[in-house]
């Protein structure tokens, strides 16, 4: 998983490099167009186009039947049943290409998330850094603790970041937290020392469009799938993950500032709208029925 993520990180860093100085909407426009073309290509090759076309014709016929025989309850009812049956068939026929499209799309979405979902921290912004210890952190005996049982950790911050609070230990969550303030935006690497172990967390903030991850994951496959944007923590360490509460980014469109809504990042809303528009616009050129 780590190898795949490493390759995708390089690929998307290169792909999005030309858009670094441009508004987020421009990059999303291009990526959406490429994604739409990719999905059309896969859809065409993995779906039964003839069957799909036939089913669509059946559905249209049913709709016409309802309009033509709107005085006949029996015919309307029969047409409705036909439309429903054909819709189920349509969904079943779409399922196969979707199975081919979704896995790569998920990987693409995961990469885009870490380029577009989080805003670059500005000077004066506050961030909370949280290091979560492994469930068995006490077993190894490698973590020094205070008399009260608090793990002793030190923070190593680069110039441009300051810790505004001492470490806060919440034993129920196994979390050590610090409140940081950005004095100078930039690309920073934060260090956490626990006993003899050293950990790091990236904070990219020199440019608006950059790969930035709120979580440096542990070694589990699921963690790495969800947070592919950063090299995972060492397997033998006492930390389960390290997190930074990055603010969500907005995407400015002409006349509309798209924001995170109900947990859906702004970029994702824009990406899906653009992708759908491109897919519809290009479907005839690709000779795809859907």
């Amino acid at each position: 998983m780590n190898l795949l993520n490493s390759a995708l990180r390089v690929l998307f860093d290169l792909l999005l490099y030309p858009f670094q100085a441009l508004p987020a909407a421009v990059g999303l426009l291009v990526v959406s167009a490429l994604a739409a073309m990719g999905m059309l290509w896969v859809f065409k090759r993995t779906s039964n186009q003839e069957r799909l076309e036939a089913v669509k014709r059946q559905i249209h016929a049913g709709l016409f039947e309802i309009r033509l025989f709107n005085d006949s309850f029996r015919r309307i009812w029969s047409a409705q049943l036909g439309i429903l049956r054909n819709n189920v068939t349509y969904l079943r026929l779409s399922l196969v290409p979707m199975l081919f499209i979704l896995p790569p799309l998920a990987l693409v979405v995961a990469q885009l998330q870490f380029h577009y979902a989080y805003a670059a921290p500005a000077a004066g912004d506050q961030l909370v850094l949280t290091a979560t210890l492994d469930e068995g952190w006490q077993d190894s005996g490698e973590v020094p603790v205070s008399a009260s049982g608090k793990p002793q950790a030190t923070l190593e911050l680069p110039a441009g970041l300051v810790a505004e609070t001492p470490s806060l230990w919440t034993p129920a969550d196994r979390m050590l937290s610090w409140r940081l303030r950005v004095e100078q935006p930039g690309d920073h690497v934060l260090g956490i020392h626990i006993g003899d172990q050293q950990f790091s967390k990236d904070l990219a903030g020199s440019r608006p469009l950059q790969r930035r991850s709120p979580v440096k994951p542990g070694r589990s496959w699921v963690d790495q799938f969800i947070y592919p944007a950063e090299v995972p923590l060492p397997a033998d360490g006492v930390l389960a993950n390290v997190a930074l509460d990055l603010a969500p980014a907005e995407v400015a469109l002409p006349g509309w500032k798209v924001q995170e809504m109900a947990g859906v990042p702004a970029w994702m809303t824009v990406f899906f709208i653009f992708s759908i528009v491109f897919a519809y616009a290009l479907r005839k050129r690709f000779g795809v029925v859907f």
Binding site: S146, K150, S167, L168, T170, P171
Partner: peptide, 11 residues
């Protein structure tokens, strides 16, 4: 309010 056992800080 989750308090730290050693320091005057809380979440």
């Amino acid at each position: 309010v989750r308090t730290d056992p050693d320091e005057p800080v809380a979440k």
